[in-house]
């Protein structure tokens, strides 16, 4: 039941190794730093009064996050952030290409579409990797991930071409590289 309920959002299983470790403290501190940074960015006031309020508010949010038990590898993925950098430009290029393709189909006179619904393999080791892969599929117009199971993703594609491109497995391999 727990798995099914979580699947509404991410459709992944909570991994067994997500038990509490010393890494939690590091993650809590880095979450605090990130929250404080966002506060400074949004507020733009630097008087001691506002900086003090910021410190209290961020501490409260971190405390609530700790109580909700959402500070784990999945909720606060510090370990893969730098490996995402080479992946994002490639993804952006894919998104641009897919956008042009879908736009052409939308405006073509007889709606040049041939939708398919099929499972594609997802060979990521971690849940987070699978989520990145599934979200990358959805971000690329023309393909939408509709269901996620361990090791495979059910994809609805607007055309056979988009599905064929996904089935070459290039995106799958690149997301696996992001995991390291």
């Amino acid at each position: 039941m727990l798995i099914e309920r979580r699947s509404l959002l991410f459709a992944v299983h909570r991994s067994e190794n997500a038990k509490r470790t010393g890494g939690d403290l590091v993650r809590a501190i880095s979450l605090y730093a990130a929250l404080y940074g966002v506060w400074l960015l949004l507020s733009g006031f630097f008087s001691p009064f506002f900086l003090g309020i910021a410190a209290v508010c961020c501490a409260l949010v971190v405390y609530i996050a700790l109580r909700m038990d959402v500070i784990d590898q999945e909720g606060h993925p510090v370990q893969i952030s730098w490996r995402l950098i080479p992946y994002l430009p490639w993804l952006a290029w894919q998104i641009v290409r897919a956008n042009l393709d879908v736009t052409r189909r939308v405006f073509s006179r007889d709606l040049d579409i041939d939708p398919v619904l099929r499972w594609v393999p997802a060979s990521q080791r971690t849940d987070l990797g699978t989520v990145i892969y599934a979200n990358s599929i959805t971000l690329t117009p023309g393909t939408v991930s509709t269901d996620v199971e361990p090791g495979r993703i059910r994809v609805h594609a607007l055309s056979g071409d988009a599905m064929a491109e996904l089935e070459t497995g290039e995106m799958n391999a690149r997301v696996r590289d992001v995991e390291g």
């Binding site: 998104i95 641009v96 897919a98 956008n99 879908v102 736009t103 939308v106 405006f107 709606l111 579409i113 939708p115 619904l117 959805t138 971000l139 690329t140 117009p141 023309g142 393909t143 939408v144 509709t146 609805h156 607007l158």
Partner: peptide, 26 residues
């Protein structure tokens, strides 16, 4: 606008997901 037009032209729910992606991304 292309996303909005696609939302209107596409024949069913699943095909309408794709033009919605146009608005969300580019």
């Amino acid at each position: 606008v292309a996303g909005g037009a696609g939302l209107l032209r596409m024949p069913d729910f699943f095909t309408r997901l794709h033009p919605a992606g146009l608005v969300d991304t580019l």
